[in-house]
């Protein structure tokens, strides 16, 4: 349990929990504002940006990744606006055109960019590689206190942790406006809150979480992290504060159970292999949502 766990399982486990919470917290507000699919949209759009950044920079450094993703996101926004204006087409359909095309372009770019580093392939982009984020320098629990070993932590861990901190700070600082805006945008505007700026901020932070999580869970499974824990929490409580806490808790539980099941589940059945951790986390969060949907105390619409 000592050395092996710290080196192989602890980093992905911590990263998984960070990803799950970092996505679930903004997910609450997206869900209430009926923007749940924004996470889906973002994760599709940023793919070509991330791939281009990878091709140009030669590695998946945080800065290059964020810049590539931001460029792709801005590009897509301009494209959507153009299509909407000229074709007088509803935004949903315009978004559908741009997102699917950009995702297709990203996939083809990925196939074309012959990367010998085997760091980024298509499967990786679709469902991540959480179990691949291991800590080579760890020698046991003592390494947690050893600065030399700590320097060898997978770069995704501090990155994800930083994103999580940013999101939590944002949520705490803007708690009141966020809460008011999520339930009654008109009232929030009447109070003088800048709801557009705040809504934009929320989307940007979600994008930040989605991009940072790209390595770990890819661009499709991350949608489960945005939607499932908040949706389940919404069916369990009527109070926003409790809902956010609960969603973070459910996210962490899904991440831990999912990771453990993926890593050791087949082993318990007598087979010495592991399955996709990101997929398992999504599955567990789906099961939690299903339970909440069937017997959550507040599952019904108030009519």
């Amino acid at each position: 349990m000592g050395f092996e766990f710290v080196s192989l399982s602890l980093p992905p486990l911590v990263i998984g929990v960070c990803v799950a919470i970092a996505c679930a917290v903004p997910g609450n507000f997206l869900l209430l504002r009926r923007q749940a699919l924004i996470g889906d949209a973002i994760s599709h759009v940023v793919l070509p940006g991330i791939v281009l950044a990878f091709v140009v920079a030669g590695s998946l450094s945080s800065v290059a990744m964020m810049i590539g993703a931001a460029v792709a996101a801005v590009f897509s926004m301009v494209a959507i606006e153009l299509i909407r204006r000229f074709g007088r087409i509803e935004p949903g359909a315009a978004m559908g055109v741009v997102f699917t095309t950009m995702f297709a372009a990203g996939v083809l770019l990925l196939e074309q960019s012959d990367t010998d580093g085997v760091h980024l392939d298509v499967e990786h982009a679709l469902f991540g590689n959480l179990e691949g984020l291991i800590w080579f320098d760890a020698l046991g629990w003592a390494s947690l206190l050893d600065p030399v070993a700590l320097a060898g932590l997978p770069v995704e861990l501090p990155r994800m942790f930083a994103v999580l901190v940013i999101i939590v700070v944002f949520t705490v600082v803007y708690w009141r406006p966020l809460a008011v805006m999520s339930f009654d945008e008109g009232f929030a505007q009447a109070l003088g809150l800048r709801t557009q700026a705040l809504g934009m901020m929320l989307v940007i932070l979600s994008a930040l979480a989605a991009v940072a999580a790209f390595d770990a869970v890819g661009s499709i499974i991350v949608i489960a992290m945005f939607i499932c824990p908040p949706a389940a929490a919404r069916l369990l409580t009527n109070q926003l504060g409790r809902q956010v806490w609960l969603s973070a808790l459910l996210a962490a539980i899904s991440a831990i159970i999912g990771y453990v099941l993926a890593g050791y589940g087949l082993g318990w059945l007598g087979y010495g292999a592991s399955v996709s951790a990101a997929g398992m986390i999504a599955t567990v969060s789906g099961v939690i949502l299903a339970i909440a949907a069937v017997c959550g105390p507040h599952r019904r619409r108030v009519s």
Partner: peptide
Amino acid sequence: GAVLSVFFGFGI
């Protein structure tokens, strides 16, 4: 969103 990602995850 929930169905899409969870089914996909389970498929993976």
